[in-house]
Simulated assay, not measured.
Amino acid sequence: MPHLRFRAVEFDTVKSLSTALVDDLQPLMACPREDFTIEHISTTFIFDGDVSDAYPFVEVFWFDRGQDVQDQVARKVTDAVRLALEEPEQDVAVIFTALKPHAYYDNGEHY
């Protein structure tokens, strides 16, 4: 925990940005490096019955760390995606879902 899920970003791009991104996020989120999960989700976007292009979409599942940290994480994720794509103006959506420790279990035990 935290979990980052990438859509509309190529697998190799997610792989290449993963180390530096965790390097940047780990101090902000104040959790062990090994607790991060980065996932690539292959997705097809559809609009009006046709396959359509989509801009990068990153979901962050985490225990809430407040608005200030959330803003910093969103900026770091956006910057990492833009840098990896070599597109400084690329639109990037970052969506946060705050999980509740009592509803998150590891090995049958909640946090």
Rank of each mutant, 00 (worst) to 15 (best):
S42D: 02
T43C: 04
T44A: 01
F45T: 04
I46S: 05
I46K: 03
F47R: 05
D48E: 03
D48Q: 03
G49Y: 00
G49T: 01
G49D: 00
V51Y: 02
S52N: 07
S52V: 06
D53I: 05
A54W: 08
A54S: 10
A54N: 09
A54K: 07
Y55G: 06
P56K: 03
P56G: 00
P56E: 01
V58P: 07
V58W: 04
V58M: 07
V58K: 02
V58L: 03
E59P: 01
E59V: 05
E59L: 03
F61L: 12
F61G: 09
F61T: 10
W62C: 07
W62N: 06
D64F: 11
D64M: 10
D64E: 09
D64Y: 11
D64R: 05
R65I: 13
Q67E: 08
Q67H: 10
Q67Y: 10
D68K: 15
V69W: 13
V69P: 10
V69Y: 11
V69I: 15
Q70H: 15
Q70R: 14
D71M: 13
D71Y: 15
D71G: 15
Q72K: 14
Q72A: 12
Q72W: 14
A74D: 13
A74E: 12
A74G: 13
K76P: 13
K76Y: 15
K76E: 13
K76A: 14
T78A: 10
D79C: 13
D79P: 12
D79F: 15
A80D: 15
A80I: 14
A80G: 11
R82V: 08
R82W: 08
L83E: 13
L83S: 13
A84G: 14
A84M: 11
A84T: 14
L85P: 09
E86G: 05
E87T: 01
E87L: 00
E87M: 02
P88N: 09
P88A: 09
Q90L: 09
D91V: 06
D91W: 03
A93V: 04
V94Q: 07
V94M: 00
I95C: 05
